[in-house]
Amino acid sequence: MDTPEARQDRARVRRATAHTILDRLGLFDRWRPLGSPVLVGSVALDLVVEPDIDMEIYSPAPSVAEGFGALVACAQLPGVRALRFSKALDLADRGLYWRLDYEFTPDETWKIDMWWLPDDHPGPRAADLVAPVRAALGDSTRDAVLAVKEGAAARGEAAQGVWVYQSVLDHGVRTYDEFRAWHARTPTDGLTSWRPGAMG
Rank of each mutant, 00 (worst) to 15 (best):
V80K: 04
A126R: 03
G161I: 05
W110Q: 00
Q166M: 11
W110R: 00
F179S: 02
G95L: 09
G156M: 04
E178F: 04
L129T: 14
P124K: 06
A136K: 07
F85A: 09
V164P: 02
V72R: 10
L191H: 11
W115D: 08
G79D: 09
A70T: 08
M114Y: 07
D113T: 12
R142Q: 06
E66N: 01
E66A: 06
G67D: 04
T192R: 05
L129H: 14
G172D: 05
G161N: 01
A154G: 09
F104H: 12
S140F: 01
P118F: 09
G156W: 01
V168E: 01
G151M: 03
A158P: 00
L146Q: 04
R185E: 14
A73K: 03
L71R: 01
L146M: 03
V130C: 07
T105P: 09
R84F: 09
L71I: 08
R99Y: 00
A135R: 14
W110M: 00
C74E: 13
A88Q: 15
E103T: 06
G67V: 05
D93I: 13
E66S: 05
D119W: 12
V72L: 13
D128A: 14
E103N: 01
M114I: 15
A184G: 14
D170H: 06
A135E: 15
T109I: 13
V72C: 01
D120P: 07
L146S: 02
A75G: 13
T141M: 00
D101V: 03
Q160W: 10
Y97C: 02
G67T: 07
R99T: 13
R185H: 12
L191G: 07
L96Q: 07
A73P: 15
S140T: 14
G79R: 07
D107S: 11
G161H: 02
A153S: 08
H121Q: 02
W116R: 03
D107T: 15
A135Q: 14
V80L: 04
V168Q: 03
R84H: 14
